[in-house]
Design a protein around this nucleic acid. Structure first.
Ligand SMILES: [Zn+2]
Ligand SMILES: [Zn+2]
Ligand SMILES: [Zn+2]
Ligand SMILES: [Zn+2]
Length: 403
DNA sequence: GAGTTTGAAACT
DNA sequence: CAGTTTCAAACTC
């Protein structure tokens, strides 16, 4: 049935008559092995491969099949049924691209040794219950199970494409190129035209640098987001601090463990300062802040906050030593001309509206001043969370606030 | 998401 | 071997 085939260059056409001429090719096999890697997680770090989307290529789609049916139940007589489609076309290369990194044959052959030494027929013995399509594949191409690119694990010299690429228009610097996709240089066996994928290629170096920079950027972004999230959740879970000197539990130190710009008392100072120009003793402070916001543009607001008549308090002086920018902490989006990617003017306004709503709510419910301020701060924390989540999704939603 | 580009493999 | 066809993935907008 699977006797050694003649030359690979002379395909056997007799078998095609009985069961639709479709050939399980090296492409199929590559797909097959990567499918098996998902099923048999013998490898330490075998990231799952995305299943292919072949529809017309006679791809066997073993990823799906094997996940449903145990290998032992894939009767050999049912070979044709394993074919995904009944077309009469050749297999496609796409699945073959999966084989670039090379499957770990030891996982299937049960033999020790590296992948390159595993014999195709050893593999075949393990899976002899598989369909005749695989037998045909092996017969047709004894090299089918050999990875195109040596894994080069510790040894690195064998990291080269077994056949070389034939790129003509990609410069071998896009993933169209199998060499580039495998993160290796093109070699002398490549027949590419206009290749820029060699060690000294300036284009290649530029590309590598860009990729590295992008990677660093992503890492920094992730780290910053994580840190900010933890800080905010810390704030939200903190017990309500006392605002007045005699009010709270003396054992609690509300400011401990928070960076200066997030300490509660400091924030309270900001509220006070924001409001200092309009000191109506009758109104509650939060109410006055709200009214201030209502009739003041954001630019004016920001400018006025740092106006000349602002009384400088001692703790503010600590935060803003001479020479530092005059804008208060957390007010970036309020600075004239500053444009934040995520804290846009709309976001800032929406945030203030949310805070105002909390202020009014607190007043309506006759809450204490401390309780109302606490509500406002917690609302602020929720607003920040929304901004952070919105930024994480990197959507272009102009206003992540939903209040 | 739709449309285009690309190169491997099958085929002639 | 070269040229063509076919295909799904990579890429672009
Ligand atoms: Zn496929
Ligand atoms: Zn190439
Ligand atoms: Zn190459
Ligand atoms: Zn090349």
């Amino acid at each position: 049935m699977h006797g050694r085939n003649s030359a690979p260059s002379s395909p056997d056409r007799t078998m095609g008559q009985r069961k639709r001429r479709k050939t399980a090719s090296a492409a199929h096999v590559g797909h097959f092995f990567h499918s098996m890697r998902r099923i048999m997680p013998s490898e330490s770090t075998s990231r799952p491969r995305k299943p292919c989307n072949c529809t017309k290529s006679l791809c066997l789609k073993l990823a799906d099949i094997m996940l449903i049916t145990p290998i032992s139940q894939n009767a050999v007589s049912e070979g044709p049924s394993m074919m995904s489609r009944s077309g009469d076309r050749r297999p496609d290369r796409s699945c073959d691209r999966d084989v670039i990194e090379g499957p770990s044959l030891t996982a299937f052959s049960g033999t020790e040794g590296d992948a390159s030494s595993a014999s195709p027929h050893g593999i075949f013995n393990v899976f002899q219950l598989l369909s005749a399509d695989f037998q045909a594949c092996l017969d047709r191409n004894p090299e089918a199970f050999k990875p195109k690119i040596g894994k080069g694990k510790e040894g690195e010299s064998d990291r080269r494409h077994s056949k070389g690429c034939n790129c003509k228009r990609s410069g071998c610097l896009k993933n169209y190129c199998e060499c580039y996709e495998a993160k290796i240089m093109c070699s002398s066996i490549c027949k590419c035209i206009g290749c820029k994928n060699f060690e000294e290629s300036p284009e290649r170096k530029t590309l590598m640098h860009l990729a590295d920079a992008a990677e660093v950027r992503v890492q920094q972004q992730t780290a910053a987001k994580t840190k900010l999230s933890s800080q905010i959740s810390d704030l939200l879970t903190r017990p309500a601090p006392s605002l007045s000197s005699g009010g709270g539990n003396p054992a609690v130190r509300p400011n401990s463990g928070l960076p200066p710009h997030m300490r509660y008392q400091r924030t309270q100072d900001k509220l006070d300062n924001n409001f200092r120009g309009n000191p109506s003793p009758r109104k509650s402070r939060v109410r006055a802040v709200a009214e201030d916001q209502k009739r003041t543009s954001w630019n004016e607001y920001g400018r006025r906050r740092s106006g000349p008549e602002t009384p400088i308090r001692r703790d503010q002086q600590r935060d803003h030593p001479p020479g530092q920018h005059e804008s208060g902490p957390g007010s970036m989006c309020l600075q004239p001309g500053y444009r934040s990617t995520f804290v846009t003017k709309e976001v800032a306004e929406a945030t203030c509206a949310c805070l105002l709503a909390q202020a009014e709510e607190g007043e309506k419910l006759s809450k204490s001043k401390a309780a109302t301020e606490r509500m406002i701060l917690e609302e602020f924390g929720r607003c920040l969370m929304r901004v952070i989540n919105s930024a994480g999704k990197a959507k272009s939603d102009p206003c992540p606030m939903s209040c």
